[in-house]
Design a protein around this nucleic acid. Structure first.
Length: 839
RNA sequence: GCGGACGUGGCGGAACGGUAGACGCUGGAGACUUAAAAUCUUCUGCCCGACAGGGCGUGCGGGUUCGAAUCCCGCCGUCCGCACCA
């Protein structure tokens, strides 16, 4: 028996053994209860780093644990393979995006395999594979037929140099992130998905997701942004260009008598009409558009308005006329694009009214007596009683809201309504490396779906990236097609789908992937929902919301009877690492730095470097730790063990040399414990108890994803086993421990399992059961407090009566000394825990 | 501005309202060794003390309680999300 565990040869051997046995292949028709464990699939950016590995290791522990518990486990892996980095690589080094992507996939797959993950590789998929995106096109057509897909003209960020549309994140200080060119706002016809049709469902559904972090549910709730209020119509005293009035939305209809102006968005049709004929209005509208939309700019931007000279008629008093402004702070795409201003009770309106010297009227106060109290400094948006509001006077805010809405509805000038922050999902991207949108534009027939028999619409291979813009647009023949309706010449849609579409249904395709349709209903329903989904919190809103929408849309279409795709969600923390910079500001990789007596120096040059902050791993800061390098040096188990042990999983983990070394030491220690298990004779009651307490604790900790705590318990057990004299108990403890560590450190566990002479794979061994009789201690330590302060501890039999404990406490020498012979005024006894003597 | 989370030794972190600091890392001392590595033993919150023991301690200030890291109120700080949403 070797004295050291050698991962270099053992890891690959066991990986091959699992592979050959098909251990992790999920069986669709299994009778066992199912467990679908999924980690967010990676973008194949190049290589696997330890941040990826942390994510997959957590999922892997659960998957392996569930398998040992007797579940049929689906734990698949694939590639979110479309996206911009591939096109950027194509531009930078003249390599085809597909070639670059597939080569990255091959590398990363190899890296993942070396980490020994229990994936069902037979279900691997890549979104850039026509076998996948062709089915996505079919689903897109399904949604189109169900009326959930539409086209509309929409503003985009247009980079005039790269001739491409930029996402908001790609616009930095108003300039394109690559070209540095000033970004223009352009109107383009774009494809949209009607996610707003599901706003209510998506909001309500959050309530049932009790295995999601509250934080994520709250973020989604805010993102959906439901507001209830009144939409009503202002008539104009005199119509302009056919506009006789306009609609506004408010959540505070109760303050209707506090209004002193109305304001239109610069994009409002009336504002645009005025700009056509009035130079000053046109200038103001143009000025509003110029302003940036970044957070910082908005914060500092002054409220500005342009008095149109128009007058709006108050709906409850035909004599009451309000000035109508065009105002820079009114958004066209929220509500109706127009507001009624109540300066007394809305901060923005307050600022605006102050600047333009409009009346600031109080209509809500703490009591009737406050009616004449002026509003000063800032608006009062709180609750209270209506004042100066005619028939509303004396009502509470809630009652007044209802009364105004009721009146508006009965008089026909408005209605109670709900407004959402959530917008429809624009899925058009003017890029090559994405799923082609399966439509054809015909001058005669309009926009026509590609016939299903012609799917998939595949991307052309012969494209070049030496000229900016969308290669699909430039391609000599790809977009030339015949109209499926009239047979005439037509043009293929050259937009591709947002990559979030690709990731909105991949978990369904993992569950079922027939060749001739997106998925099989029954097969998919067997696995879904995903029981535990694990990924970064950066996807808390978009990806998770889109996937929820997609699932509900499929349900509405009758394609899948599942409400929510992810029953359990866990958002894990990042892996961070130290950073170094040279004197001239270059980032220096930590493994190129040596720490000498005079501080850190760069090994290659001997020059001093400055230690930077501990940051999220990124290529630019050169602090990425590649998984292969770690596996080469320490083996997969040590890497996995460290990624699980050092921090709670939801928090960031700092990668450190000391940490991985500690994990390596423990893997070796484990090997020694297992292989040097001097079995011996007889029971060791104390060890038995420790073992079963550990089984119970590790089980609950894994179920709760508290891997760091599970590991702490395993360390304790390891010490106990090492210290215990030979006994039958000790042999059992060592064997059981091998099973307990198997989900986390599967290779050394298999090696030990086999060394112990156990048949089969530990990956398929049953999870140990804790004997509840052994979970309780026979003796407990009782804390003895005087006035809540710990003064002594004593040992008592478990379940000792209160009186006995009190007597024992009073007999304590220390207690006697402190009490100085006086009797305590009060005695609190918590059985098996403590005695508190109140003097 | 709105919403949320968090704040515990040198570090990562444990702790159903009941012995704060489990477990790991770092560091000290020792054993084994010709030596080193590996391994093992042991100590490691701060202060006073030779020991026994005592005092102080969970960001700060209050409160509830026999008892608070934990619950409540108010500050301070850090991080995250949203952001002119009517």
């Amino acid at each position: 028996m070797t004295s050291r565990f050698n991962p270099l040869q053992a890891d690959a051997r066991w990986q091959q053994a699992w592979d050959e046995a098909g251990t992790f292949r999920a069986v669709d028709e299994s009778n066992r209860p199912k467990a679908y464990i999924l980690e967010m699939f990676p973008y194949p950016s190049g290589r696997i780093h330890v941040g990826h590995a942390r994510n997959y290791t957590m999922g892997d522990v659960l998957a392996r644990y569930k398998r040992m518990r007797g579940f049929e486990v689906l734990h698949p892996m694939g590639w979110d393979a479309f996206g911009m980095p591939a096109e950027n690589a194509a531009m930078e080094r003249a390599v085809h995006p597909g070639e670059w992507t597939w080569s990255n996939i091959a590398t990363m797959r190899g890296q993942l395999k070396r980490l020994g993950y229990a994936f069902d590789w037979s279900r691997e998929l890549a979104t850039c594979d026509p076998a996948y995106y062709g089915q996505e096109q079919a689903l897109f057509l399904d949604l189109y037929e169900a009326g959930l897909v539409y086209r509309k003209s929409s503003e985009v960020n247009w980079d005039p140099v790269d001739m491409t549309v930029l996402a908001n994140e790609q616009v930095i200080d108003g300039r394109g992130w690559r070209s540095g060119a000033l970004v223009e706002r352009r109107k383009l016809d774009q494809w949209f998905l009607k996610i707003t049709d599901f706003a209510d469902e998506l909001l309500d559904g959050l309530g049932a997701l009790d295995e999601w972090p509250d934080k994520v549910r709250l973020m989604q709730e805010n993102w959906i942004g439901k507001s209830q209020g009144l939409r009503f119509r202002f008539e104009l005293a005199e119509a302009v260009d056919g506009h006789s009035g306009f609609e506004v939305f408010t959540t505070r209809p109760d303050t209707i008598f506090g209004t002193s102006f109305a304001a239109l968005s610069p994009d409002h049709p009336i504002a645009l009409a005025l700009a056509e004929r009035d130079e000053a209005a046109a200038a103001f509208v143009a000025e509003c558009k110029k302003g940036g939309t970044t957070a910082a700019e908005l914060e500092t931007q002054e409220k500005k308005g342009f008095d149109t000279g128009l007058e709006a008629v108050h709906p409850l008093d035909p004599e009451w006329r309000l000035p109508v402004y065009i105002a820079n702070f009114v958004l066209m795409d929220y509500g109706t694009g127009a507001i009624f201003g109540v300066p007394g009770h809305d901060q923005r309106d307050f600022e605006f009214a102050t600047k333009y010297r409009l009346p600031i009227r109080r209509v809500v106060g703490a009591s009737r007596e406050e009616a004449d109290k002026p509003i000063e400094g800032e608006a009062e948006s709180g609750d209270g009683m209506l004042v100066n509001s005619r028939f509303l006077d004396g009502m509470g805010v809630g009652e007044a809201k209802a009364v105004v809405i009721g009146r508006a509805e009965s008089e026909g000038w408005g209605e109670g309504t709900t407004v959402w922050r959530l917008r429809d999902w624009g899925v058009s991207r003017q890029r090559y490396w994405g799923t082609p949108i399966p439509f054809i534009h015909c001058e005669t027939c309009g926009v026509v779906p590609v016939p299903r028999a012609q799917l998939p619409v595949t991307l052309p291979q012969d494209v070049s990236f030496d000229v900016p813009g969308n290669p699909l647009e430039r391609h000599p023949s790809w977009k030339q097609v015949d109209c499926p309706c009239c047979g005439g010449r037509a043009r293929r849609e050259t937009d591709t789908l947002d990559t979030f579409v690709d990731s909105s249904w991949y978990f369904i395709r993992f569950a079922s992937q027939p060749a001739n349709r997106p998925f099989d209903k029954a097969a998919a329903e067997r696995w879904l929902p995903v029981d535990q989904y694990i990924g970064g919190v950066e996807h808390a809103i978009l990806h998770l919301l889109y996937a929820r929408f997609w699932t509900r849309a499929l349900k509405r279409l009758g394609r899948l009877d599942v409400d929510e795709p992810f029953a359990g969600l866990f958002t894990q923390g990042m892996v961070t690492h130290e950073t170094y910079r040279s004197v001239d500001g270059r980032w220096v990789a930590p493994d190129e730095v040596e720490v000498g007596a005079g501080g850190p120096i760069e090994r290659a040059t001997g020059a001093a470097v400055e230690r930077g902050r501990i940051e999220k791993m990124s290529k630019s800061k050169r602090n990425v730790v590649d998984s292969d390098a770690i596996v080469d040096q320490y083996g997969a188990d040590a890497a996995r063990w460290f990624l699980l042990s050092d921090s709670p999983p939801e928090r960031d983990l700092e990668w450190s040399e000391e940490g991985i070394n500690g994990a390596w030491r423990f893997i070796q220690r484990l090997w020694r414990i297992a292989t040097a298990a001097r079995a011996g004779e007889g029971r060791d009651a104390e060890l038995d108890r420790k073992l079963h307490q550990t089984i119970a604790a590790v089980t609950t900790n894994i179920e709760a994803l508290s891997f760091n705590k599970a590991i702490a318990r395993l360390y304790e057990l390891a010490s106990a086993v090492e210290k215990a004299p030979p006994s039958a108990s000790r042999g059992e403890a060592a064997e059981t421990m091998v099973r307990l560590v198997a989900p986390m450190a599967p290779h050394v566990a298999e090696e030990a399992w086999s060394a112990l002479g156990r048949a089969g794979l530990v990956a398929e061994a049953p999870w140990p059961e804790a004997d509840s009789a052994l979970l309780v201690e026979e003796e407990v330590t009782i804390a003895v407090q005087v006035n809540g302060k710990l003064r002594d501890t004593l040992t008592a039999p478990k379940g000792a009566p209160r009186e006995t404990l009190e007597e024992m406490a009073l007999a304590s020498e220390k207690v006697v000394r402190i009490l100085e012979g006086k009797a305590p005024r009060k005695v609190i006894v918590v059985p098996d825990r403590l005695v508190n003597l109140v003097a």
